[in-house]
Simulated assay, not measured.
Amino acid sequence: MRRSISIGAMLIAGLLASSHVVGLAAPGQRPERTQTSPTVDVELVIAVDVSYSMDLDELAVQREGYAQAIVSKEFLQALRAGPNARISVTYFEWSASSDQRIIIPWRVIDGPETADAVANEIMKAPVRRGSRTSISGAILFAMPLFDEDPYRGFRRVIDISGDGPNNNGPTVTPVRDEALAKGIIINGLPIMVKEPSYSTMDIENLDWYYEDCVIGGPGSFVVTIKDRENFKEAIRTKLLLEVAGRPPEYRVVPIAEKQPRVSCLIGEKTWQDRWGR
Rank of each mutant, 00 (worst) to 15 (best):
M1R: 10
I7F: 07
A9H: 11
L11T: 10
L11N: 10
G14M: 06
S19H: 13
V21W: 12
A25P: 09
G28D: 09
P31V: 11
R33T: 14
S37F: 15
T39C: 09
V40H: 00
I46Q: 05
V48C: 12
S53E: 02
M54E: 07
L59I: 12
L59F: 05
A60Y: 15
A60I: 13
R63L: 12
R63P: 10
E64I: 11
G65P: 07
Y66N: 04
Y66Q: 08
A67S: 10
I70L: 15
S72M: 05
S72D: 06
F75M: 12
L76G: 03
Q77D: 12
R80K: 15
A81Y: 08
P83A: 14
F92P: 03
S95N: 07
S98P: 03
Q100L: 05
Q100C: 08
I104F: 07
I104H: 06
G111Y: 04
E113T: 11
T114V: 07
N120C: 12
V127W: 11
R128G: 13
T133F: 03
S134W: 03
S134Q: 00
S136N: 06
A138I: 01
I139A: 00
P144C: 02
L145E: 02
F146K: 02
P150K: 04
P150S: 06
R152G: 11
F154N: 12
D159P: 03
S161P: 04
D163L: 02
D163Y: 00
N166Q: 08
N167Y: 00
N168H: 10
T171V: 15
V172C: 00
V172F: 04
V175L: 08
A181K: 14
I185C: 01
P190W: 01
M192A: 13
V193H: 08
M201P: 01
I203Q: 07
N205Q: 13
D212W: 00
C213H: 00
V214A: 01
G217C: 04
P218E: 09
P218W: 05
V222H: 02
V223P: 04
R228A: 13
F231W: 13
E233Q: 15
T237I: 06
L239H: 08
L240G: 06
A244L: 11
G245T: 04
P247E: 00
E249S: 14
A256D: 15
A256F: 14
K258I: 09
P260D: 04
R261E: 05
V262W: 03
V262E: 01
G267N: 00
K269Q: 15
W271I: 09
Q272N: 12
